[in-house]
Amino acid sequence: MALRTVNFTINGEAKSVQAESRQLLVHCIRETLGLTGTHVGCETSHCGACTIHLDGEPVKSCTMFAVQAEGKSLTTVEGLAVGGTLNPVQEGFWEEHGLQCGFCTPGMMMTATALLRTVNEPTETEIREAISGNLCRCTGYVNIVKAIQYAQRKMHATPAPEAVLQGGD
């Protein structure tokens, strides 16, 4: 099967990969690029474990072909921390025990990071709505919501939230 060259940036780095048309983006990320932080949960577009940012927006990378990433800017969970410092959302998950087995966590953090970048002070309802495409089978969501609220407070306590909330385009 013919391979195609696909060019995109991922976590700020320009990449050129070879992909079969039918390769799903999540497999390109995990297998070709070795970035295994992005998980495959359901494979059926339901769980959100594979959530990444595509030009800054959270999307399910199991429901896109790698070839569709041509010219795009991607961010995965590996791109959230900068210089070894966790982003506020990651710190929130740590502080508030926002994970148990951790399988859903990368996707949750990608969705939460995108939410806090677009909505200044989301209410609890807005947070729950935003993560409604990310399923967690362990926590019952309570600590995940707390983790996101922690991140929100932390960002507001800091002078330049845009500079702090890294990740994305």
């Binding site: 577009s45 999307v59 429901t63 896109m64 409604s132 495409g133 990310n134």
Partner: peptide
Amino acid sequence: IADPLVRNR
């Protein structure tokens, strides 16, 4: 329709 991640696409 679907969920917010699906609605982005």
